[in-house]
Each structure stands twice: as C-alpha cells, then as structure tokens.
Simulated scan of single mutants.
Amino acid sequence: MRLFHVVVATLFCLISPLTVAASATNIFDAPEQVSPLLPGLSLPAATLKNSQNESITIKTLTEGKLSVLVVYRGGWCPYCSRQLAGLQKLEAKLAALNAQVIAISPDAPEQLAKSTIPNPFYTLLSDDSLAFSQALGLAYYLDDKTALAYRNKMGVNFVALDGTEKVALPVPAVFVVDKNGLVQFQYANPNYKVRLNEAVLLAAVQAASEI
C-alpha cells in the first residue's frame, strides 16, 4: 500500500485500501493556529472528486452560482454528521435564494458513497489529499495522543505522513461564496464541537444573494 500524506477516516470502521499522494505545504501544528481564507478573497482553484470518483473543479461548480461550502472532518465525526443533517432544515429557504450547498471532507470517494445522511440535497466531494483544505488555510496536524485515540476508539485509520505518524484534518468551516467566486462570509472554529448557527448561516446567504 502506498503511503499517502493525509489519511482520512473511514465510515463505521470500514477501511479502504485506496490511498492518495499529497503535499504537506500548508498544515498548521494545531487547530488554534489555522488561518482561514478571509471574506473578500477569491475561492482558490481546486479539483476534487465525487462519490463516483469523478474529478470536479470547484470553479465549475461555483461559477455564476451562490454557494455554501461546508468543510467537515469526515463521515465518522458525529458533530459533522449532525451539522450536515441540520442543513436539510434550510433546504427550501436556500433553494429560494438559488443557493447550492457543497460539502467537502477528507473522506475518500468510496467513503462518501456510504454517507448515512438520507437523501442529501447537497453535493458531497472528497478532498482526500487535503489540498483544498490547505489552500483554504484550514488544515492542521493532530497531536499524537488525539491521533491514537481516533484510531483506536473511533476507527479512524491512518499511516505515516512524510515518514512520521502525524495526521492532518481540516478545522470545520463554512464559506458563503457569491456568484463571482468571492467569499462573502466565513466561519471556522478550532473547537470542532461548536458549529455555525443555522439562522446566522441563512442571514449570511441572504446578504450574499443581494450582492
């Protein structure tokens, strides 16, 4: 099995043999140190994959469309699953604003296909190399104790990164991106247990829709 630089979690401890290569160029040492992309800046270019392992560019998905980008840690994370399920409450209101939801995680494409969220109205994409999370300034290394606990207690599988046992994840974040590809709103919290209030998100999308 090839070593890959950022190992992603499996759903329900189902471990896939597929690995990918990645470059660790912008990964912070702790979640508190991340530097998320600021409002007013353009969304970075990236090519991700869907659950069918098809390559999709962020530009293609977001060009000319009001978009909500949700970066989450993986389908193994209960806080992330709860957040994504909660977004379904906003489906009708977001649709009325012509806003789409794009959810991105380090899960591999085949793991996305195992999502337990029923009938998601959003697009699920894989950033299994964490390249996009790095470009967004969200990637950080887990400390050894946390990485070990995730592997042993939660079934998160990982292998060596750059010859070490370090593991990286994204800080959960939400970006509202206007039709021109500019970030109009950003929320990122190093405390993965605290997620963006749905009413605040809706207000941000409403404001961006008027630009």
Rank of each mutant, 00 (worst) to 15 (best):
N98F: 09
E110I: 01
S133F: 13
Q83Y: 15
L130N: 05
L130M: 06
Q100I: 15
T123K: 02
L112N: 12
A92Y: 13
Y122K: 02
F121S: 08
D107W: 02
G137E: 13
L87S: 05
L124W: 12
S126K: 11
A95K: 12
I102G: 02
Q111E: 14
E91N: 11
V101F: 04
S81V: 14
F132L: 15
S129F: 03
L84A: 01
A99N: 02
Q134S: 02
G86C: 06
I117C: 10
K93M: 11
A131W: 02
E91C: 11
F132E: 12
A113T: 05
S81D: 13
L87R: 04
A113S: 10
A95V: 07
Q111D: 13
Q83G: 05
C80D: 06
Q88A: 13
A95L: 10
L94C: 08
K114G: 01
L125H: 03
P118C: 06
L84K: 00
D128M: 09
L125C: 04
L112M: 04
I102P: 05
P120Y: 05
S115F: 07
Q100R: 04
D107E: 12
A96Q: 12
N119S: 15
L112I: 03
S115W: 07
L87N: 04
A135D: 11
S115I: 02
G137L: 15
S129P: 00
A92R: 13
T123Q: 01
E91R: 07
P106F: 15
T116M: 10
D127C: 06
N98Q: 11
S126G: 10
